[in-house]
Every structure is written in C-alpha cells, then in structure tokens.
Amino acid sequence: MRAPDSDHLMRSFEDRLRGWIQRPPRIPADIAKSRVLARLPEVSRPVPWMRLIAAAALVSVLVVAVWLGSPRPAGEGSGDTTVAFAPSLDSNVVMWVVDSRTTVYFVLSRDGSEKRGVS
C-alpha cells in the first residue's frame, strides 16, 4: 500500500511545484524589457572572417595598382632613363651629362673652320 501513497505524494508535490513555479514574475515582462534594454552595452558585431580577408585583399590590390600607376619623381629611376630620352646627335657632337640637370654638348668642327664657341 506504500506505492499508491508515494504516487499520491509525488503527484501532490508536482502540483505544488507547478503552482509555485507558474506564479507570475514579480517584475512584469514589459518592465523587465525596459530594465534589460537600459543595461544593454554597445556591441559591435564581429565582421565575418571571410569578408574581412576579402576586404583586406581588395585594399592591397588597389594600393599596389595606385603605386604602380603613379608618376615617379625626377631622379628616382635608374641612369638608363637619361640615355633613353637623349636626343639623337650628329657624329660631331659629344654629349657630357654632368648630372641630372646639367648636360654639356661639344660640337666638333668638321671642316677645320676657325669658328669657335661654347654652347
């Protein structure tokens, strides 16, 4: 006869538990909502990794493209640049590049004329 008593006690306990737990909260839901919202910190949502990597790659490509396409300041290039842009000269002209700003041309007389000068 103990089993039915135990079942009865268990049911009685479960009924009491339901009654106790299912009481409405002391704080109503709408007030709880405003209290919780007042406590919410500013959260910056994390950017998904794949998007972050793609964005970084795009920025890198753009930076390289802009750097390659930009004009070089004078003197930055190698010495070959000067030769490449040198005017075509006659065989009796000697060109002396002193530095990037100074070029001296010597014109040799072909016919032994007495004309002399400095250009």
């Binding site: 409405p24 839901a29 709880a32 909502k33 405003s34 919780v36 919202l37």
Partner: peptide
C-alpha cells in the same frame, strides 16, 4: 526587447 518580453515568464 520584444524577445525579452516574449521569453521573460
């Protein structure tokens, strides 16, 4: 806030 209200009880 609406989720809080829904799930509070």
């Amino acid at each position: 806030g609406a989720l809080v209200e829904t799930h509070w009880d």
